Simulated scan of single mutants.
Amino acid sequence: MYSNSFYRYPVRQNQNNNRYITVDGFYIQQLIPDTFLVKVSLSSYADTTFEAVTNNNNLYDQTAKGIKEFGIKEEDIILDNTSVTPIFEDGTNITSYKATTTFTIRVYNFQTVLEALSSPGDLNFEGITFTLTNPEEHYQQVLNRATENGIRKAKEIADAIGVSIDPIPLSIKEITDLDQLIERVTSSIPGEISTLKEGFVYIEAKVQEVFKIHTPM
């Protein structure tokens, strides 16, 4: 007789009958901005750098005082940079100096932006950025809608192939492109004051959801 080791016995393997549906949920929302970052500058000319900077500092103080008359708070006038540039004659001789101060005005009403920029003065309009005061709050709402979108997709796919799924996802993974999110939640526009119009910002969210398919008993 042969040893039992020569006979092949059937081996019962553990079969994993779990099947899944994986979907991406997506939602994007257009919003009217509630915060406006207005980039402006002032310039002064003088025979010396000291005089040019002094004159421009005085001009900045007067301008900031006028801006506050539109209800803009001091903390919303943000000084960015002051620079001095020599002015040449014939490309060799310095004839004077130009001092330039760049600053940002944070405003919460678009009409105030138009009024402040259209008032008489020495302001040079550099550009404007539309954004949101609390983007995190808006993003959370959009994220919830993206999750709901994924659930609807999974149900539609399950119905199309004739199966049923657990309506509660096994997992939800946030896959929003954060760089794109930041880019969309701000909108920067250079240009002339006369053509300035209120724009929109966008918030989007994307999730990946996994649903378990019910296996018939």
Rank of each mutant, 00 (worst) to 15 (best):
T131Q: 06
F211M: 10
I78K: 06
I157F: 11
S171A: 15
D90H: 09
D177L: 02
F70G: 11
K173M: 04
I77Y: 00
T82I: 15
F26S: 05
S118Q: 11
N58M: 08
N144M: 05
Y108E: 06
V201H: 04
E204N: 06
K73P: 04
P120K: 06
L123M: 06
F88V: 02
I161M: 07
Q141H: 11
D179N: 13
V207R: 00
F50W: 12
K98A: 03
Q141D: 14
S43I: 05
S171E: 12
D76H: 02
F200Q: 05
R152G: 10
Q180Y: 08
V163M: 09
N93R: 14
D47E: 14
Q13N: 14
N57P: 06
V201K: 03
P190T: 10
D122W: 01
I175H: 00
T215S: 13
L59K: 01
E137C: 03
A46P: 07
Y9A: 11
P135K: 09
F125M: 10
I203M: 11
S188L: 02
F36N: 01
G25T: 01
V210Q: 14
I94S: 01
L196H: 12
E204D: 05
I168Q: 15
G71M: 07
N56M: 05
N4S: 15
K212N: 12
A146C: 13
E74M: 05
T54D: 14
Q140S: 10
P169E: 01
F88C: 05
T63C: 06
T195L: 12
R184L: 14
V40E: 02
S83N: 11
Y60F: 15
G127F: 06
L79G: 08
T176D: 03
V142R: 02
